[in-house]
Design a protein around this nucleic acid. Structure first.
Lengths: 335, 335
DNA sequence: TTGTAGGCGTTATCAT
DNA sequence: ATGATAACGCCTACAA
């Protein structure tokens, strides 16, 4: 079933049929009605391939997720999905890569293959953008990292103020009496987010003159439960003096809590644990997770709005912050 | 950049270029080499739209996820994604619908629009298939439900034996001394899986002559943490005699545990809790979750293998069971 | 082994 | 307001 068939069926030419199906002007009401009904009757669908071939562009927004094991991105994709299908008629194409592959190179390939209207990068490495992004002229938004240092006209960004959010959390921990604080975070050489959050930690420690030795007190982890567990194990092996552990992701925090519990340590009585992200599961675990929370809905909303401004209005690149807020729950306490 | 450009660039005709790019025979090694190198040099990518328009089919496998809040499906999609991109060159198109929309009608629409090679239904309602599936002739696999009662030649299925798996879990609970057992499960009028598992429960209760009043002892819940929490709340309000609660999903179980804890009840000392799915997070919560575990990797593997057999080999529909096994961990105990 | 040309379903331009 | 027609980029007989 093609518009040709529809044309034969209704007696109108393919031109008129096409115009009706695309809600274009210069069609009589009569023709519009006849054709609409015929199309309805046989459940007609335009052939996307022919359409996109002709128009030289797709209807797709590409989402590039870096590090699929990170549950936060999972929740984010879902929120983006929801907003796109509710508010627009664009189609989402989601592509996953592991944490250490080059997202910009991958984007380059997918741009040629799929000709998306725009790209949402969920996570990304500044270095990769610096070296390869110049070759991409599709509108893009970097989500969860700040790209204002990168002055590409087609690259917007939205994230929370990672530095400040993290610093506030550590400040607060210090204000509550903690002096021996361990950090579980991502590999800083691979993750800009981990680097920013690390800097936030360091700023807090320096401001309050709390000793902190990265070699000793910082443990690398992948963004997963297991990663958090393993990192906590390392921290515990190195020292039993920690009264608090700050984790750069809620999933890490859950792993860490499990590990502490296995070592007979109670959370928060013996050790306080703070996570980052604000995953809804945090409200259901025992103890409820204290976390630096960022709204996935807001992040989703802002990122696709920013992207649409770029490709619909030809707007210039913009860089936004969304608020992050500490959800004080049960896994951390004053000492 | 099109094959025409590549043709001009190398001096060969578009026919030869196309043959090289599609790894077809009847091309001299010399031509192959020249064209490959030229394509490589300018990062050439075939235009998928033109390709698929011409070939009248796509390279896509469609995944229809019913009920996106169910974390189990999230894990399953990820496993499918991993296997498809590792073992094949097909592309995955994932589409989410909420729990009460009609997946078969949606599939019908997407078949026309995207012409996928095959469809994977993650979750599905037998009734919907019975009434509308006859109009679909694309190869399909129903995942997590048994479709052997539906005798469509293009519909395979793979799932665990929901009835037996559930019955074993309840049998075991009874063997461990539990007599007052509450069930938290999906809405049976909407979910076949919930119905099957419910039947498994009932069979166990009847076999062991344990009294069970669905009105009283079964609480409906959505497949989410919150759903589990709310359902547990209802169960507790109705009776304080339960020594064990069986939940039809790990996320429900997590919600239930949180609710019990909020009511001052200890898991498993006061109440045992068993989940279903075997989500990896279950190993990290406190207490570690006892659960009826099915392997998402195996489910992913079998479902795409079954689908490929259907559309690659023209195989006839097959219906498989994968094993389910109780992971005995900390959240349930003998009394 | 290589080249040529028709057509896939659509959109858009140009007549009418 | 409507119709005819030329692309879009690719594949694939068929011809050479």
């Amino acid at each position: 079933m093609t518009i040709k068939d529809l044309s034969a069926l209704t007696g109108y030419s393919v031109g008129t049929v096409s115009r009706v199906l695309n809600d274009q002007p210069n069609v009589s009401e009569k023709a519009r009605k006849t054709i609409r009904e015929a199309a309805e009757a046989c459940g007609f669908q335009l052939n996307t391939n022919a359409q996109q071939l002709k128009q030289q562009r797709s209807n797709n927004i590409l989402v590039l997720v870096k590090g699929s094991s990170n549950q936060f991105f999972g929740a984010l994709v879902e929120a983006i999905q929801a907003r796109v299908s509710e508010k627009t008629s664009y189609h989402l194409v989601v592509d996953y890569l592991d944490e250490d592959s080059n997202e910009v190179l991958r984007a380059l390939q997918l741009v040629r293959e799929k000709k998306p209207l725009g790209i949402l990068f969920l996570g990304g490495n500044e270095e990769n953008f610096r070296t390869h992004f110049a070759r991409i002229d599709t509108p893009c938004v970097l989500v969860t990292s700040d790209a204002s240092d990168l002055t590409f006209p087609n690259l917007s960004s939205v994230c929370c103020d990672e530095f400040q959010a993290t610093k506030s959390a550590i400040d607060r921990l210090i204000a509550m009496g903690h002096r021996q604080i361990g950090i579980i975070g991502g590999f800083r050489e691979r993750s800009d987010t981990a680097t920013r959050r690390f800097q936030g930690c360091m700023a807090a420690f320096e401001e309050h003159k709390i000793p902190f030795a990265p070699d000793q007190d910082y443990a690398n982890a992948r963004f997963s439960h297991e990663g958090g567990y393993l990192a906590a194990e390392m921290l515990i092996a190195r020292s039993d003096r920690y009264t608090a552990i700050f984790c750069m992701a809620d999933v890490m925090a859950m792993g860490a809590i499990r590990c502490l519990t296995d070592h007979g340590l109670k959370v928060p009585q013996d050790v306080s644990v703070i996570g980052f992200d604000g995953l809804s599961v945090g409200e259901y675990i025992v103890p409820r997770l204290t976390t630096v929370s960022q709204s996935v809905e807001l992040l989703a909303q802002r990122s696709i709005d920013l992207l649409r401004q770029l490709f619909e209005d030809g707007a210039t690149a913009a860089h936004e912050f969304i608020p992050a807020e500490i959800q004080w729950r049960e896994s951390a306490r004053s000492i």
